[in-house]
Design a binder for these strands. Structure first.
Length: 709
RNA sequence: GGGCGCUUAGCUCAGCUGGUAGAGCAUUUCAUUUACACUGAAGAGGUCAUAGGUUCGAGUCCUAUAGCGCCCACCA
């Protein structure tokens, strides 16, 4: 019998265990599994480098709502959980840990570092999985995957090889974003802009004045570029040589005319540093110019800098200006030059572009079919405006650098000849010697960008399961993730999914916004406003947290998570509990399968209920969980409890037997129906009460009851 | 420079294909042991950013303006 107030702590672990032991998280075990149509959500693999945060809590809630709803609607519902090794992210987390211990990754042999991080992620995996269980997630643990599992890596390597054979993966000597602190290259998405006010130097360069904020890169500059239409420089011709005095002595400069130059900016003339600037690199490629490295990977000047060799760039900058001044080459210095610099998104260190030999993926041929599929409406975006955002990005897509110079990740499936430098894709690790010169091969020391593996997640998780999972569950139905990672992840999954399987990887993309603090501010450790979902569960119960996260949360917009709101829904949980107490107390012996003759009022109430069910169902089908939750909440509390129960009290106690039977049956019927409607949102309390309802022919658990219609 | 949003009750936000505004929280008054005080009843509150337009009729569609926010981009 239900007693006292609802106590989530007594219920949650017990109920989760009941579900797990029922086996119904695994869709193969559902009643009549073979006849059911499949419904699949692949869980975004959680980074195995920390704890669940509020954003994860939202993911778990929304996806569990969808899964439970579809399961109750007779689908073979698969929600496949997974964890991500999260290459660079995890290595950064681990490096911070090492720093605290007074160690450095650069002193640890790569194999040992890999092993240490492996152990670190294994510990985290256990934690995270327990936290996912705390959220009530009804995912199929028997199909759990990790991005470093053998079968996943196999799929990833096969895709790599296919792409290579199709000429889409190539080794390029191109300019990349280099983080001097982390000693790795990064994709454009992994850098961010940082606005700074710096000095802007106007330097005399022969007959020209050039402007720069980075004089330390200028040692090797031997091309001076201007716009072909610039009348000021009309007398200088493309290719013209000019002898001039520069930082460390006389040099010969060459005039280049290029339309990329902005005539309005600076003096309209600039020198270029192709090794350390992406624009300059492109220009030098267009005109086939020499490129020379000035700065090494530690951001120190190379011998070309003469007396400045070995200095860190920021130390060298004022000294170089001093020297230029003494030579009379500084025209003026603008002290307040506002401009943006690229920095590492993790450590804020200034990105130093470098030319390196790396593996790239040609994106245009992959983007095209993805664009077509999206334009044809084969993938539905929720909210819709993300469609435009995705298309815009795909239209302007650049090649994707895949190599990362870090230990933690999937090794590049590449062998390099020590003698002739030839590269071989070797996904099975079979090649021993170079097929060209027969010399010894060594492994490419780099690892793959983590998004290259997670970008294949929807099919990689289903391909090598030893069952018919790929055919049964792919393409998946919904990809639910943070709007923030639409480029990093969603777009790449679409491209790689179509490439590898010929099919879109998912039919719907549901993108949620950020979870903010009560004041609407982004949570961050430095602000100290991070809300830990486990604390909230402890205080208010999982069900209250879950419904707080969806109530009023429209897709794509951020949600301010206020504890008062959660407290309110804890009260709601208690309301459900108390109403249950009342209904159970007053309906003992009622057989819900035998509908009595209903009084006029009761028939009206039943019709009203059916209307509400239809409305809520429609909202669920349209992914409007925020509306469905509100309606069921409102119906349960303010219609069922406040009106119907209050009114029926007199019938239950009254003398009229027809009215009494009618009222009792109605209360039980509505209450049981509400438990079903509420179940996807608040699974623990509803299941707990369901277990105590005495209903004929009821299922083993509410989780697999039929959704009301 | 390009793109995408937002602006509705004190606060947080809903309002789908157009029919003179809704929820939760907060607030005011009342009820005082009722399944539930983690409660119930009643109430107060908004010229839906601004200006035009389409329409019999516009938070809802169109245009412009203002403010706020986010994303992308190679101004040395």
């Amino acid at each position: 019998m239900l007693e006292g107030q609802y106590d989530s702590k007594k219920v949650e672990n017990k109920i989760y265990k009941l579900w797990e032991e029922s086996g119904f998280f695994n869709p193969d075990n559902l009643p009549n599994a073979k006849k059911r149509k499949s419904f699949t959500i692949i869980m975004p693999p959680t980074n195995a480098n920390g704890n669940l945060h509020a954003g994860h809590a939202l993911v778990m809630t929304i996806e569990d709502i969808m899964t439970r709803y579809k399961r109750m609607n007779g689908f073979k519902a698969l929600w496949l959980p997974g964890l991500d090794h999260a290459g660079f992210e995890t290595q950064v987390v681990y490096e911070k840990k090492l720093e605290k211990e007074g160690r450095s990754r650069f002193q640890i042999p790569k194999e040992q570092l890999y092993k240490e991080i492996w152990d670190f992620t294994q510990e985290n995996k256990v934690n995270i999985k327990n936290q996912v269980r705390k959220m009530g997630a009804s995912c199929d643990w028997s199909r759990e995957k990790f991005t470093l599992d053998q079968d996943i890596v196999k799929v990833v390597y096969e895709t790599f090889e296919n792409l290579y054979k199709d000429g889409l993966i190539y080794r390029g000597k191109k300019i990349v974003n280099w983080c001097p602190k982390h000693q790795t290259s990064l994709s454009d998405l992994e850098t961010k802009d940082d606005e700074k006010i710096e000095k802007f130097y106007y330097l005399k360069y022969g007959p020209f004045t050039i402007a720069t904020s980075r004089p330390e890169t200028k040692f090797g500059d031997k091309y001076v570029v201007m716009h072909p239409d610039d009348k000021r420089y009309i007398d200088y011709k493309n290719g013209q040589k000019i002898d001039l005095e520069w930082i460390n002595g006389p040099i010969t400069a060459t005039v280049i005319k290029d339309k990329a130059i902005d005539m309005e900016f600076g003096t309209g003339a600039m020198t270029i540093t192709p090794w350390h600037d992406a624009v300059d690199f492109d220009m030098s490629e267009r005109h086939n110019l020499d490129k020379e490295q000035i700065i090494d990977l530690q951001s120190k000047l190379l011998p070309i800098a003469g007396e400045f060799t070995g200095m860190k760039i920021l130390e060298a900058r004022p000294k170089i200006i001093e020297k230029l001044q003494s030579k009379g080459l500084v025209e003026k210095i603008d002290e307040n030059y506002k401009h943006v610099t690229k920095t590492c998104y993790k450590c804020n260190t200034l990105i130093e572009p470098q030319i390196m030999s790396q593996w790239f993926l040609k994106m245009k041929p992959l983007a095209e079919p993805a664009t077509k599929a999206i334009q044809a409406g084969k993938i539905k975006f929720i909210p819709e405006h993300y469609k435009k955002i995705a298309l815009h990005w795909l239209k302007n897509i650049l090649d994707w650098p895949l190599s990362r110079q870090i230990a933690w990740g999937i090794p590049m499936p590449i062998k390099i000849c020590e003698n002739c430098g030839e590269n071989f894709v070797d996904i099975n690790n079979q090649l021993q010697s170079c097929t060209k010169c027969n010399s010894q091969l060594k492994k490419d020391p780099d690892t793959l960008d983590t998004w290259f593996s997670s970008g294949q997640w929807p099919f990689a998780t289903l391909m090598n399961t030893g069952k018919n999972d790929f055919n049964n569950f792919y393409p998946t139905d919904v990809m639910e993730t943070a709007g923030e990672i639409i480029f990093f992840w969603v777009s790449r999954m679409i491209m790689l999914g179509i490439y590898r399987t010929g099919k879109i990887p998912f039919k719907n993309v549901y993108l949620h916004g950020l979870v903010l603090d009560a004041k609407g501010q982004k949570m961050s450790k430095s602000k100290g406003n991070v809300i830990n979902p486990l604390d909230l569960i402890e205080k208010y119960g999982t069900d209250a947290l879950r419904i707080s996260l969806v109530m009023g949360n429209t897709p794509g917009t951020s949600l301010a998570l206020d504890e008062n709101k959660i407290r309110g829904y804890k009260n709601f949980a208690n309301k459900i509990w108390n109403a249950g107490k009342f209904v159970l107390m007053n309906t003992a012996g009622v057989d819900i399968t035998k509908k009595p003759r209903l009084s006029k009022d009761d028939a009206k109430y039943l019709a009203e209920l059916n209307k509400s069910i239809a409305k809520i169902t429609k909202q669920m089908d349209n992914f409007k969980f925020y509306l469905a939750a509100e309606d069921i909440y409102h119906y349960f509390w303010h219609v069922f409890c406040d009106k119907i129960i209050e009114e029926k009290k007199k019938d239950i106690l009254g003398e009229d037997l027809v009215k009494r039977d009618s009222a009792k049956w109605l209360l039980l019927e509505i209450y049981a129906t509400c438990l079903q409607l509420l179940h996807p949102f608040m699974p623990f309390i509803t299941e707990e009460i369901y277990q105590q309802l005495s209903i004929k022919n009821k299922e083993k658990c509410l989780m697999i009851e039929k959704w009301p219609d």
